[in-house]
Structures are given as structure tokens and as C-alpha cells.
């Protein structure tokens, strides 16, 4: 394995403590869609956008996937390269990744398969006026 193998950030590991915008603490595996929406409503800088998965290109040999999203009402095209086990939060569904078996194995985070058409929670900056 390469010595510079990338790893996921620690907050996706099951049991990690997450602070919502109102100060409430929850475990990462207990987060609900409403927690993100309500936190964004409180935030002065961030807003929730809907990002629809349009395409997933991945391979187990590289451990990476390129996920193409259509973001927000203007349907801007954004592509991100992530580890296969990187979890995204799908509206009304919860954590999902390109390879949920790896996510469950590495993070113990309950996870479903990310699919084309899924609508993920993402963030953008609020318009500052």
C-alpha cells in the first residue's frame, strides 16, 4: 500500500460526536435530514443545497470514485473525487456511499449504496447582501 494512502476524516467513524448549530450533540450515525436543515437555518453563512447524483465513475483498483452532481436550482455541474467509502447524506435516507460495504467495514457507519438520482445534502454560501 502507498505510504501516503488517504484516509477518511475521523468524524465519520461511528460514535463520533457532532454538534448541531443550536448546540445539541448527536452521534454521527443518529443524524437526521432535519438536523442538517435546522442547523443551516440557524447559520448566518451556510445554506443547504440539493445535489442530485448524475453520474458515478469508480473502480476498486483505484479506491476512488468521481461523483458528478447537479447542484442547486441552477443545476450547476460539480464533480468531486472521493474515496469509495466516503459517505454522503441523502435526503430522507441517510448516509450513503459508492461502496457501503467498505464504509461499514472501515467506519462501522450504517450506510446504503449511493446511486444515480439520489439527492444529497450539500452546502453553499448564503448570498451576502
Amino acid at each position: 500500500a502507498p505510504s501516503s494512502a488517504p484516509s477518511l476524516p475521523p468524524y465519520f467513524i461511528k460514535g463520533s460526536i457532532i454538534q448541531l448549530a443550536d448546540g445539541e450533540l448527536k452521534r454521527v450515525e443518529d443524524l437526521k435530514t432535519e438536523d442538517f436543515i435546522q442547523s443551516a437555518e440557524i447559520s448566518s453563512e451556510l445554506k443547504i443545497d440539493s445535489s442530485t447524483v448524475e453520474r458515478i465513475d469508480g473502480s476498486h483498483t483505484s479506491n476512488f470514485a468521481i461523483v458528478q452532481f447537479s447542484v442547486g436550482e441552477h443545476r450547476a455541474q460539480v464533480s468531486v473525487e472521493v474515496l469509495l467509502e466516503y459517505p454522503f447524506f441523502v435526503f430522507g435516507q441517510g448516509w450513503s456511499s459508492c461502496c457501503p460495504d467498505r464504509t461499514t467495514q472501515l467506519l462501522e457507519l450504517p450506510c446504503t449504496k449511493l446511486s444515480v438520482g439520489d439527492v444529497c445534502i450539500s452546502l453553499t454560501l448564503k448570498n451576502l447582501r
Binding site: 454538534q19 441552477h74 450547476a76 460539480v78
Partner: peptide, 19 residues
């Protein structure tokens, strides 16, 4: 025990400003 802010869990996808 570390406490992480909620927004660190969400990818920041900034659409390009086209209009």
C-alpha cells in the same frame, strides 16, 4: 472526546456563478 461541527460532515459544493 472531540466534538465536530455539523457542517464538517457536509461536502461544500459551490456551483459556479453562471448568471
Amino acid at each position: 472526546v472531540p466534538v465536530f461541527p455539523w457542517h464538517s460532515l457536509v461536502p461544500f459544493l459551490a456551483p459556479t456563478q453562471s448568471d
